[in-house]
Write a protein that binds this DNA or RNA. Structure first.
Length: 491
RNA sequence: CGGGGUGUAGCACAGUUGGCUAGCGCGCUACGUUCGGGACGUAGAGGUCGGAAGUUCGAGUCUUCUCACCCCGACCA
């Protein structure tokens, strides 16, 4: 048992905070609300980036980079968009510092005031569409399929490592299309890329759906989302894809000539996924011993620990390990041999469990004698002793099995914590006492959604794509409803 | 941004009505013994007590301001 970790079942929030710090993923910085992502945490983000980037390119996208600063005037061009972000923008007003004449250190030079303030991007639609305006004249210039990896700033009042920070890293895709159909198709394609990524690489089962008007991205016609269930019964929005219609094209006057020479506004999408995913990863899979990382995203997949008393033994073990390590690396796995001599094996075992390394191999004198190795898997904490010459094939199978098991476990948890109800008091009881997803009828009005939120703190996470139409009555108002929607408390 | 709490060595903390050279545990360094689930002994290093101003003969301790973090709300990915 990890004695340095708060028990997950006693205090979930504290367990999460402890885990992020103890597993050395990130820490708070001197700047309010901003985190330092430490090497181990950043390595996980790099794995996420690498796979997503590959998937974006496979679907025809290219990367580019747009400025961090956005002129204030750009921001105010799309009314809903401004309103959505105005309350959380950092603003640059000056461009120079100088020494205080009273010797009190350095001050902002009042004479260096910007004529127009710059907003630090909370998202880049406006600065990008201002560029697209110059890039698009004809249908031959379309589609534009661009992604950027960037940092953004949203001045949050209350922050938590990875889940909500004032500055965070993400990717944002911004595409321009000639037709509505094509843009809608792109929006769907990217939410599918996200769900595919979440389920196959992060072992995180997600529910795809539409956002209600209330939860929609500011400036979008439609927002699609993937929603995941965390182990404390709260939902987490893990990625979003927006159909922006012609809203930004109109705001920035981006028109193109179609084949007949007729001018029309360009259709747009945008889609994003952030470092919040690292938080999702932690909260969906980890336990009281620490992180549990799916093999496909673990920066380190296999760790080998020698157990020895004498220098002779260590030498024998090391020589055996070299062969095993080389073979595993040849098979494409990331392997570390931890032969630090100042730490006991038991300490290392616990430490790599805390870090979530999927597979641990321990080799001692007994194994050398018998031609065996002890294999321990992180997800179930089971150990077995196998013949040393079959390690690579064994571990190859085991890593696949762990990946699949972590997913199945999360899926089972979600299934067991998804409720269907038509009864308001039961709805309240589930939300308040059990947590989880609740599928219930809703009359489709923002008014009802708000009232449910006020009374229970539960929101509509999404209107799932794949729920069949079903006649029913709104859980709250009793008015007619054509289908169930997904309710939960959320991060 | 409102309410509550906490800042003392890398970490976690103690420090009495204001009083002498600011302490314990873990970690760290060296050496030795250990090593199949978080080892032990001996010796040692490590502090602008979050920051600033004030009260006082004297401030870790009292006052004011300020910064950061944690918890609960409102807001949000």
């Amino acid at each position: 048992m990890a004695k340095f970790l708060t028990n997950r079942d006693e205090n979930y929030a504290q367990w999460y905070n402890d885990l992020v710090i103890k597993a050395d993923l990130a820490e708070n910085s001197a700047v309010r609300g901003c985190m330092v992502i430490k090497p181990y945490g950043y390595a996980i983000w790099e794995k996420i980036q690498a796979e997503l980037d590959r998937m974006f390119k496979a679907t025809g996208h290219v990367n580019a980079y747009f400025p961090l600063f956005i002129p204030k005037s750009f921001f105010s061009k799309e009314a809903a968009h401004v309103e959505g972000f105005a309350k959380e923008c950092a603003v640059v007003t000056h461009y120079r510092l100088k020494n205080d004449e009273n010797g009190k250190g350095i001050i902002v030079d009042p004479s260096a005031k910007l004529e127009e303030e710059l907003i630090i991007r909370p998202t880049s639609e406006t600065i990008i569409w201002n560029s697209y305006k110059n890039w698009i004249q004809s249908y031959r210039d379309l589609p534009i399929l661009i992604n950027q990896w960037a940092n953004v700033v949203r001045w949050e009042m209350r922050t938590r490592l990875f889940l909500r920070t004032a500055e965070f890293l993400w990717q944002e895709g911004h595409t321009a299309h000639a037709t509505r159909e094509e843009a809608v198709e792109e929006t769907e394609r990217m939410i599918n890329v996200y769900s595919d990524f979440a389920e196959n690489f992060m072992a995180l089962p997600v529910i795809k759906g539409y956002k209600s008007e209330n939860e929609r991205f500011a400036g979008a016609i439609d927002t699609y989302t993937i929603e995941a269930l965390m182990q404390d019964g709260k939902a987490l929005q893990a990625g979003t894809s927006h159909f922006l219609g012609q809203n930004f094209a109109k705001a920035f006057d981006v028109q193109f000539a179609d084949k007949t020479g007729k001018l029309d506004y360009v259709w747009a999408t945008s889609w994003g996924l952030s470092t919040r995913m690292v938080g999702a990863l932690i909260m969906a899979h980890s336990d009281n011993n620490g992180l549990v990382l799916p093999p496909k995203l673990a920066p380190l997949q296999v760790v080998i620990i020698p157990i020895y008393k004498t220098a002779d033994q260590l030498e024998m073990i090391t020589s055996k390990v070299k062969t095993i390590k080389a073979e595993l690396e040849k098979a494409g796995y990331t392997v570390k041999y931890d032969d630090r001599e100042n730490l006991k094996p038991g300490f290392k075992f616990a430490d790599y469990e805390l870090k979530g390394v999927p597979v641990r191999i321990a080799i001692g004198p007994r194994d050398i004698e018998n031609g065996t190795a002890e294999i321990a898997r992180r997800d179930t904490l089971e150990k077995e002793t196998i013949a040393a010459d079959s390690i690579t094939s064994h571990i190859s199978r085991l890593l696949d099995e762990i990946q699949s098991n972590i997913y199945q476990k999360a899926l089972k948890f979600r299934t067991e914590n998804t409720y269907y109800t038509d009864n308001w008091s039961e709805f309240v009881d589930i939300i308040e006492n059990r947590g989880g997803f609740v599928m219930a009828h809703w009359d489709g009005t923002t008014e009802t959604e708000e009232k449910i939120k006020d009374e229970t703190k539960a929101t509509i996470r999404c209107i799932p794509f794949d729920t069949p139409p079903e006649e029913g009555k709104c859980i709250y108002s009793g008015k007619p409803s054509g289908r169930r929607v997904l309710f939960a408390r959320s991060y």
